[in-house]
Amino acid sequence: MSAPQAVTEELLRSMPLPRHQEGEDKDARGRVLLVAGSVEVPGGALLAGLASLRAGAGKLRIATCRSVAVPMAIAVPEARVIGLEETPAGGIAAAEAAGLARRAAEADAVAVGPGMIDAEAAAALTAEMLARSAGSGVPFVLDAAALRALRPGEAPPGFAGRLVLTPHAGEMATLLGTSRDAVLADRLVAARRAAAALQAVVVMKGGCSFIVSPDGRAWSCDRGNVGLATSGSGDTLAGIVAGLLARGAPPVEATLWGVFLHGEAGARLARRQGLVGYLARELLAELPPIMEALAG
């Protein structure tokens, strides 16, 4: 296997994001469906949703637990918020999968997982959504608890090349049916195994993140820093990638851009505020100027 290619400004300029012209409406910039949040962690949905809009998506639907839907709608007035049945543990009930799959068919990108704390319900919900969405052609981003819907080494039917996974080392170990130590021993090999087996674009998150396509091509991005190792940071990454997918970027390119934007936002905050102590929510406002600079 060849060595991973570095994700640089020059590389991204060779794969520009979709351009949006004056006069286009918000539908032309893409629609994101975000299935996320829980009673205890509604902020995961908030961060991922705002990140998708900051990445340029035109419309956002947030599907979350019914008891937090009204506060979420107030906190994110830009979004349409859908209240869903809750589990006793405070997660989204798996029985909502059929309705969510119908809503997914109306979207340009779907993200599932940020802030979902009832892991068993999240896995069942996500698995059923994937099964019902196999023929839709809509790309999905799976993060956090939603990754538990995937069986080790088994690609979801109908999703080859349009699934983006954003695991950390522990989640990668579960995806591969191995140990966390085995993943950390060679993170790039782990990412390549997962991408090939699951036919997905995989982000192996870390200080230097690896991005691997289903055909084995690999990239590395070292723009991140230890400041990104903070609550909510992964939620923002999932939202950024979903927003770029909704705009029309192909899965590999949306993921490369998303990882770079996330890392560069952290780098800019570190230079201004210090390496440790900035917040995941502060990453969001950094995104538009970084995209504008790369488009120039």
Rank of each mutant, 00 (worst) to 15 (best):
P88I: 10
L284C: 04
L125V: 08
W219P: 04
L46V: 15
Q5L: 15
R192G: 04
R281L: 08
E40F: 10
T178C: 15
G99V: 12
E253A: 11
G248Y: 03
G153P: 14
V183T: 00
V212M: 00
M15T: 11
V39F: 14
G153E: 13
V212F: 01
L256H: 02
E128L: 14
L17N: 03
M15A: 12
A246G: 03
R217W: 12
A196F: 01
L176I: 06
A89W: 08
E120Y: 08
S213F: 12
P288Q: 06
R103G: 09
P42F: 07
A280I: 05
Q273P: 04
Q5V: 15
A104Q: 05
A144P: 03
G232W: 02
R281A: 13
I117Y: 09
A185W: 03
V112M: 14
E106C: 13
S209W: 02
I211T: 12
R217P: 06
P167T: 01
M116D: 10
G234P: 03
E9I: 04
R66K: 13
R271M: 13
P289F: 12
T8H: 11
A75P: 07
G56N: 07
E10K: 08
A79K: 00
E292Y: 06
D118E: 07
E86F: 11
A107Y: 02
H20K: 13
V41G: 07
T174E: 14
A194Y: 00
G137Y: 12
E154Y: 15
P139T: 04
L284M: 08
L53R: 07
R31Q: 15
P4Y: 04
A6N: 11
S220C: 15
A265F: 07
R162I: 09
G239K: 01
A36L: 04
R187N: 03
G263P: 09
T178N: 04
R223I: 01
G58P: 05
A149F: 06
K205N: 03
A194S: 14
